[in-house]
């Protein structure tokens, strides 16, 4: 019983990060119709940059965090200016391969810059646990995870639903041309979308490497987040916010209870299996809306 609860909380904390990362590329997908397969690599790139700021350059933690987020924003801006323009309207295969090739390219660069060893991330939160009612034991970093991602998602929700630029993003994702015709600067919306997406990637990177260590393999979190997004329904932000933590919990539970049966590795597999099952029975995801296609 105690164990289950611990797994659930740990899974919840991890799953929130999936939601955070997924929000990033779902926004891009909604506004420009491009699914960015390089998101996971951007997450880990930001983590490496954070590592350099803190450990290698010795910049104080808070400033390093801000600098990393700024780096993320800059990266988003550059990618939008440099690549996106050419991508809109291209065949899907070209989009997929371009983002994947870009991701491999970044991985190569990271390989050169930071090597292939697992680097240990700077300690963000004090070590230690609290025990609640003798049932659940939580370490501080998990609590921090939960609180921070929750907080970030709330901020994002407010931004998306209450501000003008959020409204412009929604309008653009519904109908790009109509958005232009009412005076929305669509290109600017795209830039903002990419910037937000890369900032969430940076936040996700800083958080997730704090427990996993910094290593190129962490990039696969991007694919897991993508599985979350597809299971939730690509257009549905609420769906993603719900499915992320759910996926995290299932992941941890299956790692705990299925791993002994198959000697390990279930954690990294479960999101993909769930995705395949969901896609067969509900191709547009659990909360997504059906896409109507006419000839």
């Amino acid at each position: 019983m105690e164990n289950i609860l611990n797994y659930i909380i740990a899974g919840l904390a991890n799953g929130c990060i999936y939601s955070l990362v997924a929000i990033g590329f779902v926004l891009i997908y909604k506004s420009s119709g491009i699914l960015n397969f390089a998101q996971g690599t951007i997450v880990i790139l930001n983590a490496f940059v954070f590592y350099s700021f803190t450990i290698q350059l010795g910049i104080p933690m808070v400033i390093a965090i801000l600098l990393t987020l700024a780096f993320g924003a800059l990266l988003g801006f550059v990618i939008e200016r440099f690549i996106l323009d050419r991508l809109i309207g291209q065949p899907i295969l070209a989009v997929i391969i371009l983002t994947l090739a870009f991701s491999e390219f970044l991985k190569g660069i990271m390989n050169l810059g930071w090597g292939t060893d697992i680097l240990s991330a700077p300690q963000l939160f004090p070590r230690g646990n609290i025990t609640i009612l003798n049932i659940v034991t939580l370490d501080y970093s998990r609590i921090a995870f939960l609180v921070i991602t929750f907080f970030l998602i709330i901020i994002f929700a407010i931004f998306y639903n209450k501000t003008k630029i959020g409204l412009a993003m929604k309008a653009t994702s519904d109908d790009t041309i109509a958005a232009g015709s009412v005076g929305i600067r669509v290109r600017r919306v795209f830039v903002v979308t990419w910037i937000i997406s890369c900032i969430t990637a940076a936040a996700g990177g800083i958080l997730v490497t704090n427990v996993m260590g910094i290593h190129i393999q962490v990039a696969e979190i991007g694919f897991k987040a993508m599985a979350v997004a597809l299971v939730g329904g690509l257009q549905s932000l609420p769906g993603i916010i719900i499915i992320g933590p759910a996926m995290g919990i299932i992941e941890f539970l299956s790692a705990a209870y299925l791993d002994p049966l198959v000697d390990g590795g279930m954690r990294d597999l479960v999101p993909f299996i769930i995705l395949l099952i969901v896609l067969i029975f509900r191709p547009s995801g659990i909360f997504g809306w059906k896409h109507i296609e006419r000839i």
């Binding site: 409204l167 412009a168 309008a171 519904d174 109908d175 041309i177 109509a178 015709s181 009412v182 005076g183």
Partner: peptide, 24 residues
Amino acid sequence: LHVMEGRRIFEHLSVEENLLTGAI
């Protein structure tokens, strides 16, 4: 302001949000 052929509303927004996009 161009009111396009075929009623290009923002389908997933509410009526009021639709109107507000015009004021962005």
